[in-house]
Amino acid sequence: MLIPVWILDMLAGLMLAVAGVSAARLARARPWRRGTVITDTDVGHLLMAIAMAGMLTAGLRTLPGAAWVIVFGVLTCWFGYRVARDGRASGVRALAGRHCTPHLVHSGAMVYMFVALPPLAAASAGVAGMGSAGEALRYPSLAFVFALILAASTVWDLDQLSGRRYRLASGAVTVGCRIAMSVTMAFMLLIMI
């Protein structure tokens, strides 16, 4: 692969930063205490960031691809359930402003990436191994669709983040992490095609 390693390493570093922020937010919620609430977005960000860092840099690999498929399959089902529930409660138009819809896309894209990576590339170094493995990505049209949605999600989040909506809200951190993940994920999907 001709993409400079430092670009992949920088993005892996960004993902580790997202993982760190998400882990800190989870720890601050003190989940060992009865009755506390752990936000699903932080759990999702933590898992996705760790998995993506491993896909970008072989040295950061943690679990095998099959295990990640199960993890993100569960997350996709969870966020799908939340989106369906929100849609029933508030209407489809309200979904654009909620956190669950983009996380459903993120989880689905993660499942896709681990399923669509050719076996040789997946076994060697994730997206960094695509070129050297000499195999084509499976279902490239889906990669394009996901990348389009993620690009749209990124500009929407940036617009909302820089507007009045998040001026005083703690949700800005979540949205900032989501933007970093969306851009990185769209990057990975497009270089995999």
Binding site: P31, W32, T39, D40, R98, G171
Partner: peptide, 26 residues
């Protein structure tokens, strides 16, 4: 926030899994 409990009781994780509330979209 969600009122759905994923785990509770005597296990180490006693929290509930919820969703962060988001301000209305502009």
């Amino acid at each position: 926030m969600s009122d759905l409990a994923v785990t509770s009781g005597r296990v180490a994780w006693r929290g509930k899994l919820g969703t962060e509330s988001a301000p209305a979209a502009e």
